[in-house]
């Protein structure tokens, strides 16, 4: 039998995944004379994810989105906070039944050239999770591998081929197939289409949507590309320096971004329409070092709306106009929605 994570009856009503104030702090040794320093890679992230839902996590490099992915996939234990799978602490589930718990959440990586072992053929790559986590017979495994290849749009007889014999898009299909071998309920996708060409990107996005419909998968979709996020995800979480700065329904956030950083991100995203050109560099400077974040609001030094007290008080997430936002002045940023992502040429 397949090892599928089975919940206790009492927990059925609980969301698939619930994160409560997750933190990941790394300690950097200061050496012989220096002091140890703390890098707050993720500093208090909370969300819930239900069956068949997609939550997009958006942010630039250094915002902590990949660290979050490592915690959600149980590669790293959080420094503090709770991670619940169907209402049950993930650490407990991992201790009691690691194989089933690993099958509950799986991951797809950005680069299909780096994430597949060049010395393993496709059959062996896809069968490996089954060998480790289940007691299937060889015949059963081979059957499952071929079924999965067909599901992700590859020819089952190509299971004897090696990764170098496939194009980038086909390799990403193999990586998707591998993530689905254990029939996970949740898939964490870390920039799964950003290494692909446009025409191939569209194919892989469609594949992810089809598989979500077929298996009722929940996705945590990590990306820096707002147009892809807007297409795929109903809910959106924007991160900056390890903290959530805005979270809400995609429609609400895209139409009327309330945090200055969300606005800046949207303004910086080029529109596919030469008649809609405008100034896009609306944030000053670069990301501060996460080792030495600014006091108060982490964004205040780059923020065009910053006021004197922004450097003194850390803004907490609060509800403004139907979404959560961490900005003291989200209600009255002057200037109309400076950066609504415009959608070009839609009928």
């Amino acid at each position: 039998m397949t090892a599928v994570y089975r919940s206790q009856d009492a927990a059925v009503a609980a969301p698939l995944v619930e994160a409560r104030d997750l933190k990941q702090h790394y300690t950097l040794k200061g050496g012989l004379f220096g002091e140890d320093r703390t890098l707050k890679a993720v500093d208090g992230v909370s969300f819930t994810l239900g069956r068949g839902e997609t939550l997009a996590v958006v942010g630039e490099s250094g915002c902590g989105k990949s660290t979050l992915a490592r915690m959600l996939t149980l590669i790293e234990a959080p420094t503090s906070g709770d991670l619940l799978f169907e209402g049950r602490p993930a650490q407990d589930a991992m201790r009691d039944d690691p194989k089933a718990t690993r099958g509950f959440v799986q991951m797809i990586f950005q680069n299909p050239y780096g994430s597949l072992n060049p010395r393993q053929n496709v059959a062996s790559i896809l069968a490996e999770p089954l060998v480790i986590n289940t007691r299937m017979s060889g015949d059963e495994r081979r059957r499952r591998v071929r079924e999965m290849l067909a599901k992700v749009g590859l020819r089952p007889e190509h299971d004897v081929r090696y990764p170098h014999m496939f194009s980038g898009g086909q390799r990403q299909r193999i990586a998707v197939a591998r993530a689905l071998m254990l029939e996970p309920r949740v898939v964490i996708a870390d920039e799964p289409v950003s290494a692909l060409d446009i025409s191939v990107q569209a194919q892989v996005i469609n594949l992810l949507l089809d598989l979500q419909d077929e298996f009722g998968l929940a996705y945590v979709f990590i990306s820096h590309d707002l147009s892809v996020v807007r297409h795929l995800a109903r809910r959106l979480m924007v991160m900056y320096l390890g903290r959530v700065v805005e979270e809400g329904e995609g429609g609400v956030v895209f139409e009327d971004p309330a945090h200055p950083y969300t606005r800046a991100l949207m303004a910086a995203t080029p529109a596919v329409d030469p008649s809609a050109r405008k100034e896009r560099a609306t944030v000053r400077g670069e990301l501060p070092s996460p080792l030495n974040p600014p006091p108060g609001c982490p964004f205040h030094r780059r923020c065009r709306y910053a006021r004197p007290d922004c450097k003194d008080r850390v803004p907490e997430l609060r509800t403004v106009r139907g979404r959560k936002v961490a900005c003291h002045y989200a209600e009255n940023l002057e200037g109309e929605g400076a950066g609504t992502l415009r959608v070009a040429a839609t009928a």
């Binding site: 446009i198 147009s227 892809v228 807007r230 297409h231 959608v343 839609t346």
Partner: peptide, 13 residues
Amino acid sequence: ALPERGFGKRRLP
């Protein structure tokens, strides 16, 4: 094939 232009459709061309 761009998501920007496929807005409103679930599947992209």
